[in-house]
Write a protein that binds this DNA or RNA. Sequence first.
DNA 1: CGAATACTTGAGTGGGGTCAACGCAAGTGG
DNA 2: CCACTTGCGTTGACCCCACTCAAGTATTCG
Lengths: 250, 250
Amino acid sequence: MAVRLSSHPGHVHLIRKLKALGALPAAEETALLDLPVTLKEMAADQDIAADHTRPSHSGVLLNGFACRYKMLPDGARQIHSFHIAGDTPDLISLHLHTMDHGLGTLTPTTVAVIAHEVLRDLMLRHPRLGELFWRDTLVDAAIYREWMTGIGRRTAHGRIAHLFCEMYMKSRAVALANGYVFAFPATQQEIGDALGLSTVHVNRVMQDLRSEGLIATRPERRAAILDWDRLKALGTFDSTYLHMDPVRAA
Amino acid sequence: MAVRLSSHPGHVHLIRKLKALGALPAAEETALLDLPVTLKEMAADQDIAADHTRPSHSGVLLNGFACRYKMLPDGARQIHSFHIAGDTPDLISLHLHTMDHGLGTLTPTTVAVIAHEVLRDLMLRHPRLGELFWRDTLVDAAIYREWMTGIGRRTAHGRIAHLFCEMYMKSRAVALANGYVFAFPATQQEIGDALGLSTVHVNRVMQDLRSEGLIATRPERRAAILDWDRLKALGTFDSTYLHMDPVRAA
DNA sequence: CGAATACTTGAGTGGGGTCAACGCAAGTGG
DNA sequence: CCACTTGCGTTGACCCCACTCAAGTATTCG
């Protein structure tokens, strides 16, 4: 059932995210919100796009959480990124036609599905939007580099601290943080698969961070940062790679 | 001193690379080769673009080797990617204005430096070229994901095997491989910094791979793959992520 | 032919992995 | 409303892959 993107309240997160990336003129904003999309409600642990497939559509996450991941032949999993409302995680299938990894939901999720041809036409009509989306994929790439740095060279404590800093910054940018509290529904298993750690070790390190008074986690799958400065120092977190300052970027 | 990109023989690697990414019509090829560039000869271990700077130009590697890297406060280094002739490693500065990492040479190198405004104008005139370059940055991102997977979930033997497979495929794509022999001038130290391993361990594992008859390295800084199938299996290498098949991609 | 810059080797160590339970809350169905 | 299941977090014991430190031995190059 085709509706306009603007018909679902989740579109505000996309707009906020694009505005955090750079100037979004009114004409472009209107063109984007007028796009015909299909709303897809998904359960947790479903593939939005499976590895090795060739999608003909891309999606905007309107709510819920998703992740990008790769399964290895021995059953090990590496999670490459977490995605929250406002993200366009499979925009890349517009130019990389065969998926080289999977994209799956972590929680029940609403996705606005848009046909590739519609997106291509939009970007031809509005090159400024094309640039913003390109920029978005480049920020994703910067995040991969940062994770690579963490997995390769940071201790387990530093990696987990860094991840909490990043998820907080991303949530705040789309107004999904309430003070230092934000939704972070990943299990310890998933955090381990993201950071190259075992579940058991994630558990022990998170206990350390909690007992040190750095973070708190709630049964409702929310996280809170209790001491931003010390957490940031522990994870040697420098937000430059998130490229969230549109003023300096302009 | 401004010359045309076509004036340096290294331009052929760029053209080959773009053609491996997708169709490159003659008009676009001509427009690209006519670009005014400045040729810059650089020594080894110099920064093409330093961390935290705001470049106003991007470069094409015409020959030599470079790498993208990040230094951590404790002195540790993570190398994010290796780059060979034909690569455009700092194209991203066109849209991410502040460098969140460094880009440096590994060997003496020739770089064609192009002003951002010239590139922007080129892509407005030729959206098809813009798409190809976007695609190129997406392939780089796919390589980051693959490295992340390796560092997070592969053994040291698997990581090194995978890296040799990747560097061979990249060299072959721009006709810089001779059979299974290709230039790979990274030191064991640099390989370790790329794969999240210590120099000592890289050394021991490479001895294993040599004595197993999988690879050979030559004093002239060339590498040879002696048993492609076993090396590929050891690194669980699947070249999908390099997106090198323009036919299926079209 | 020194002086760097790699590459090698050995010995000892530790961060994080594995394996195997156990606790506990939230369904879910009878 | 209780028995069963399922998913997630937690704990303990043991172990190994890869790291560190320290000392070599080639190469390469001015």
